[in-house]
Amino acid sequence: MRPQTLIAVSDVEKSSAWYCEVLGATSGHGGPDYERLVVDGVLVMQLHQLEVEHHHGRFGDRAHPLGNGVAIWFETDGLEAAAEQARALGATVQTEIHYNPNADHHEIWLRDPDDYLVVLASV
């Protein structure tokens, strides 16, 4: 089994550009309604426009804040470079790079354009 995380976002193309820069991902679909983000040929995340229903109904409700109670974790070989790229894009850094003794790795906690908590962790 492999996770295929999908989050609802307010602007798919903006979020796609942000995640592609931070994660070193590429677009696997593209467009204003839906995106598949790929790293080395592997799907790492999906983005879906909040109010587009497609065949499954709407993913979210604008009356509720996006990202509340969700943390999206990514392991990376290049933590420092990814953190620097996120800072250059103006990401809000919630917690700077630090050592997490529970996971035995270093990590940084950021906020994406829709305020989802994104954790980048060393391998």
Rank of each mutant, 00 (worst) to 15 (best):
M1W: 10
M1Y: 11
R2T: 11
R2D: 03
Q4C: 09
Q4W: 13
T5K: 01
L6N: 13
L6Y: 09
L6M: 12
L6Q: 13
I7S: 06
D11Q: 12
K14V: 08
K14E: 12
S15Q: 14
S15N: 14
A17Q: 12
A17H: 07
A17Y: 04
C20L: 00
E21T: 15
E21G: 09
V22P: 01
G24Q: 08
A25G: 08
T26E: 07
T26N: 05
H29K: 11
G31P: 00
P32L: 01
Y34V: 05
V38T: 04
V38E: 01
V39F: 07
V39R: 15
D40P: 02
M45Y: 01
M45D: 04
L47F: 00
L47H: 00
L47D: 02
L50C: 02
L50E: 05
E51H: 13
V52S: 12
E53Y: 03
E53G: 08
E53V: 04
H55I: 13
H56Q: 13
H56E: 06
R58V: 11
F59L: 15
G60V: 05
G60L: 05
R62Y: 09
A63C: 04
H64Y: 15
H64R: 15
P65T: 05
L66C: 03
L66N: 03
L66S: 03
G67K: 03
N68P: 01
N68V: 08
N68R: 15
G69R: 04
V70M: 13
A71Y: 12
A71S: 10
I72M: 02
W73T: 01
F74Q: 02
E75Y: 15
D77P: 10
D77H: 13
D77I: 07
G78H: 10
G78S: 10
E80G: 08
A82P: 12
E84H: 14
E84C: 08
Q85G: 11
L89A: 06
L89S: 13
L89N: 08
A91T: 00
A91P: 05
A91Y: 04
T92Q: 13
V93T: 12
I97A: 02
H98K: 14
Y99P: 10
N100E: 07
P101S: 11
N102T: 09
A103K: 15
D104C: 05
H106M: 05
H106R: 14
E107N: 07
W109H: 12
R111S: 10
P113F: 04
P113E: 05
P113T: 11
D115P: 06
D115A: 00
L117Q: 15
V118F: 01
V119M: 09
V119K: 04
V119S: 06
